[in-house]
């Protein structure tokens, strides 16, 4: 394979953590589109501001699956403010790097988590800044040109 993945990426691809759905999820976030070749959907179970459970489903390449898996691992058990500060760089570092052309997968993983957290605020009529932090934002760096 021309693509050089770290052992950590391959481990998360071959043995993804937290795959699946949560039937009674408190929040769901979905980003990406099939046209571009990757979609991530995150399910969160939140109790008292803590992410009690998280599951994901991803359509995409090896690194899309690995970054989803890693991101779920990084936010599980965290309070939602901390989870809202997840960055794609942190996901990349935690995976011991990603090939340059795959960085957008880590951005998607960050976005998926944040989209789910936003959904949580919306569903519960919570103020986004108060709940997720003043600096909360979803960056839109998905570099695929065919994405509308």
């Amino acid at each position: 394979m021309a693509m050089e993945y770290s052992e950590e990426v391959m481990d998360h691809f071959m043995n993804p953590r937290n795959v699946g759905e949560i039937e009674d999820a408190d929040a769901i976030g979905e980003v990406g589109n099939a046209k571009c070749g990757d979609i991530m959907r995150m399910y969160l179970k939140i109790e008292n501001g803590i992410i009690k459970d998280v599951k994901f489903k991803t359509f995409g390449c090896g690194s899309a699956i690995a970054t989803s898996s890693k991101a779920t691992e990084m936010i599980k058990g965290k309070n939602i403010k901390d989870a809202a500060r997840l960055t794609n760089q942190a996901v990349v570092e935690s995976l011991n790097g990603l090939p340059k052309v795959k960085i957008h997968c880590s951005v998607l993983a960050e976005q998926a988590v944040k989209a789910a957290l936003l959904d949580y605020c919306k569903k519960n009529n919570l103020d986004v800044k108060k709940t997720l932090g003043e600096d909360f934002n979803i960056k839109n760096e998905h570099e695929c040109e065919s994405c509308e």
Partner: peptide, 27 residues
């Protein structure tokens, strides 16, 4: 998606290819 399929095949030592964007350097 094709690249993840190729990776699973590769893990069983099967070498094939795909027309997925993820296996090229383009989008």
């Amino acid at each position: 998606e094709g690249e993840s399929l190729l990776l699973l095949l590769d893990s069983k030592n099967i070498c094939a290819s795909s027309g997925s964007a993820c296996t090229s350097n383009s989008l």
